[in-house]
Design a protein around this nucleic acid. Sequence first.
DNA 1: ATGGTTTTTACTGCGTC
DNA 2: GACGCGGTAAAAACCAT
Length: 320
Amino acid sequence: MSEYLRTHQSTDEQEDEQTEERTEGCPECGGTLTASADHETVCDDCGLVVEEDNIDRGPEWRAFDAAEKDEKSRVGAPTTNMMHDKGLSTNIDWRDQDAYGNSLSSNQRQKMQRLRKWNERFRTRDSKERNLKQALGEIDRMASALGLPDNVRETASVIYRRALDENLLPGRSIEGVSTSAVYAAARQAGVPRSLDEIAEVSRVEKDETARTYRYVVRELGLEVAPADPESYVPRFASDLDLSDEAENRARQLLQNAKEQGVHSGKSPVGLAAAAVYAAALLTNEKTTQAAVSEVADISEVTIRNRYHELLEAEQGLPMA
DNA sequence: ATGGTTTTTACTGCGTC
DNA sequence: GACGCGGTAAAAACCAT
């Protein structure tokens, strides 16, 4: 605890500085920028207001001593949807030490043990809370296995939370819904993973995931646009060690195809795979259909069909 | 359940290294 | 002769109805 207090105060000290000089110059005249007390960033020389209404993360009002400063500080740990209680509930340290690092008497120790136990019981009181706890664990596990970034985990958590609130769970497995949440979140964040990839790391079968996913999307009114083929391109390209040039070419091909509406109804993954293959060909880089098929989880036949269509589309509209 | 569409599977022939 | 590629037909999977 003492440690916490000290660092907390020292950061406040720095933020107490009402004005601070920025390193970058004014975009207008190159003069020095100053952040003023009323949350504007102003140029000293020409008076240009560069930024308005900055978020004030500092203490709320003047404080006259340390205690008051703590009280009025707006600052706290950020909340996160990744923990079942958004990280807001009380945690009791597992160490049997007091705030100064001294160990507790055996009497105290037992007391703390009891407190911990009850705190834990209250924290995960009803079934919903326990449910959430487990689901979020699953979500985190799958997201890690798929290499998905934190924001996807957050989104997945939110989706799951909503599903829980709307009572979508009864009759469905926690794993199934968590899996769907991850799938939906990944797609919404523009880093889609195919159902097959998802099923790979999930504890539930692919068709159950698909079924649950549809259900969840419908009930929650989630807006998930059909996956954009382009969003698969970077991953495939890097898996195949292709150059940036080829990657860009693949994007071009896809955009072109999109304009001509060639892609409707076809699987986005197949299109992306075909574009990557075609681009590799066009930039004289060596890949085989088999290799692309491997990383994209798409049959060679599909790649063949798609990439013919892509090239035809390209010829019909010779380079914008 | 059904019918239409897309993807996959399996197989074959062709050209090249 | 193995390999990459193209094509085809039939089976399977998918989707909306």
